[in-house]
Design a protein around this nucleic acid. Structure first.
Lengths: 112, 112
DNA sequence: ATTATATATCGCAAATATACGATAAAAGGA
DNA sequence: TCCTTTTATCGTATATTTGCGATATATAAT
């Protein structure tokens, strides 16, 4: 690869691709789903649900956090995570907007 | 990594993550946008628009094709691509459904 | 027939991601 | 205080992705 070309793209495309990328692993989809499922924010509970080692789950959580889709606080020995709804809604909105634009694009019929 | 754990996840999560993954690179977002922008299906035109070598663009196109989001036919020397709207709409629909469920999940207030 | 053009594929190098075990850190309980 | 529990981080191995140049292939043009 030599150099990372990602910065050469349009910021909008970078933003959307980063949102997509972080959801581009089944473990992270599963984590988000698990967080959505429970009132209480989960912590080590997620580890039990996923077929992955604790350290790996922790890494996935960090990535979701870094992307702003999840927030977490330490409460005692445990760590509490939940979906960062504000951020999530915002980026999801941008994503949907972009996808919507694409879907009603003007290549009416099958072109190829 | 040793073994690929992806198959241990729920098929739904795998499907969604694969959709997200293929959109997880700015070049592929840009390609989709470019395809949506023009009536005519683009081919080498995409190469001109992107800051990447022709072979790299071709690879990204193949990935989009493999994921079913794009279709392409050869017309003469040129190659014509367009968005596979049917597939795209279907997977996007599933994705939106899942995201929607997540957004109206029951962790009412900030939990952490 | 030769040449030019357009695209796909191959082979490789480098970057990133995935995964785990080991270990660190920090709080709670004995 | 010492031990246990919970989570984060480090180091490392391996897998995957990204990217390019070189090359193959196939059509079009001369």
């Amino acid at each position: 690869m030599a150099l990372n070309k990602k910065s050469l793209f349009h910021p909008d495309d970078i933003l959307l691709s980063e949102f997509a990328k972080v959801l581009g692993h089944p473990a992270r989809i599963a984590i988000i789903r698990e967080l959505a499922k429970h009132e209480e924010c989960i912590c080590g509970q997620i580890v039990e649900v996923l077929p992955l080692a604790q350290s790996t789950v922790s890494q996935h959580l960090q990535e979701l956090k870094k992307a702003g889709l999840v927030q977490g606080t330490i409460s005692g020995v445990k760590s509490c995570y939940c979906i960062h709804k504000e951020n999530f809604a915002k980026v999801l909105g941008l994503f949907n907007e972009a996808m919507h634009d694409i879907m009603l694009s003007n290549n009416k019929e099958k072109c190829c």
